Amino acid sequence: MKATEPTRIAIVGVGKIARDQHMPSIEHNPNFTLCAAVSRHARVDGVEHYNALDAMLLKRPDITALALCTPPAVRFDMAMAALRAGRHVLLEKPPGATLTEVETLVGEARERGLTLYATWHSRHALGVEPARDWLAPRRIRSVRIVWKEDVRRWHPGQAWIWNAGNVGVFDPGINALSILTRIMPHPVHVASADLDFPSNCQTPIAARLEFADPFGATVTAEFDWRHEGHQTWDIAVETDAGSLLLSEGGSRLTIDGEPAVSGPDREYPAIYEHFAELLAAGRIDVDVSPLRHVADAFLVGRRHEVDAFHE
């Protein structure tokens, strides 16, 4: 393949996020051409369809990259099959069901000289990098994350999110954690957690986390999937030299009460721009720090049973 030709890519898992974000981002990026879709239940108009990944890998050796958009609990085997077939892999967030399986994929990709990219779309929100730069020279006194949304609105009819091996309310909450691990000048770790499990589910519907900070800052996070009305995705930071608010999932930055950055959503287009750069450079980009916070919350968390969840 000539360097000037777009990378032939396939989407594996044709769900809401693939249709809403991945497909439009691929369509508008000249570095990629969507050539196939793999799904047991859905099809993409105008694109070659396969019911199983193995069949696509066998019949389309010209497709050199895959975007895995399946639930995390079933992603490892697919990613490993793709890497062993010599394909580059982009992983939707969270990159896997466990830390070890993600590390195993990194080792496989490195051994085969392939690109593996664990995406964190919220890190590409417009306010995140300016917030990171503003916080870098300051002493942080407190961080308060409030991430509340309505699961029925964002995941209608998606029963998989309540099954073991997936992460429940941490599916959106990990977006906040991906921002936290990007903007903090130093690492923090989960010290305690309270997790609310519906009586008929294997994953939590709400969570409250407290973090330990080596410099004494108070860092907390509150995630809730039962929130109706205005959806809230805020990170408020107090420092020794002013305050910062990242709102609307990181797309709006306010400093000392004054608007600093805002603009349209370009998170997924930015993901594919970075994927193209990684492919050109032959690099791996996998940061598991947001997933590690989730794993630690499950390890230290106190379990609370709450009312059963029904659509």
Rank of each mutant, 00 (worst) to 15 (best):
M1L: 06
A3K: 11
A10S: 02
I11T: 09
G13K: 05
V14M: 09
R19A: 12
H22N: 01
S25C: 03
P30N: 05
C35K: 15
A36M: 02
A36W: 01
S39I: 08
A42W: 11
V44D: 04
V44I: 15
L58A: 15
C69D: 12
C69I: 10
C69Y: 01
A81D: 14
R84F: 08
A85N: 08
H88F: 03
V89E: 00
K93I: 00
P94E: 12
G96L: 05
L99Y: 03
T100Y: 10
L105I: 03
A109N: 10
G113K: 06
T115G: 07
H124P: 02
L126C: 12
E129G: 00
E129K: 13
A131R: 04
R132E: 06
W134Y: 11
R138E: 00
R139V: 14
I140K: 07
I140G: 06
R141K: 15
I161Y: 12
G173D: 01
I174C: 07
R182Y: 09
I183Y: 08
M184V: 01
H186A: 13
A193I: 06
F197T: 03
F211C: 08
F215I: 12
G216R: 08
T220C: 02
A241V: 00
E248H: 14
G257D: 05
P259H: 04
A260T: 13
A260H: 14
I271M: 11
L278N: 02
A281H: 07
R283H: 15
D287M: 02
R292T: 15
R292C: 08
A295T: 15
D296N: 13
V300H: 06
V300A: 08
G301I: 07
D307Y: 04
A308N: 05
